[in-house]
């Protein structure tokens, strides 16, 4: 299944956001997620299924003004 993660198309095995984070090595990372422009809280990542062509954003703390 092809998922666009942080703007880059990737072939993923994962079926949920939780599994996608595992696959990316970010299972324990401090990140927040959004799917197709909508925020997905941590508690819902396990049940949020992914579909071909979905756009997943995985954001981390960063410097800001």
């Amino acid at each position: 299944m092809k998922i666009e993660i942080n703007g880059e198309p990737r072939e993923m095995e994962a079926r949920t956001i939780s599994e996608a984070l595992d696959e990316l090595g970010l299972a324990d990372a401090k990140v927040a997620t959004a799917l197709n422009g909508d925020f997905v809280p941590k508690a819902l990542r396990g049940s949020q299924t992914l579909r071909d062509g979905d756009k997943l954003e995985v954001l981390a703390p960063m410097q800001g003004g």
């Binding site: 703007g7 954003e57 703390p61 960063m62």
Partner: peptide, 8 residues
């Protein structure tokens, strides 16, 4: 102040 950006 801090922000969020794509995890790199």
């Amino acid at each position: 102040t801090v922000s969020l950006r794509r995890e790199q």
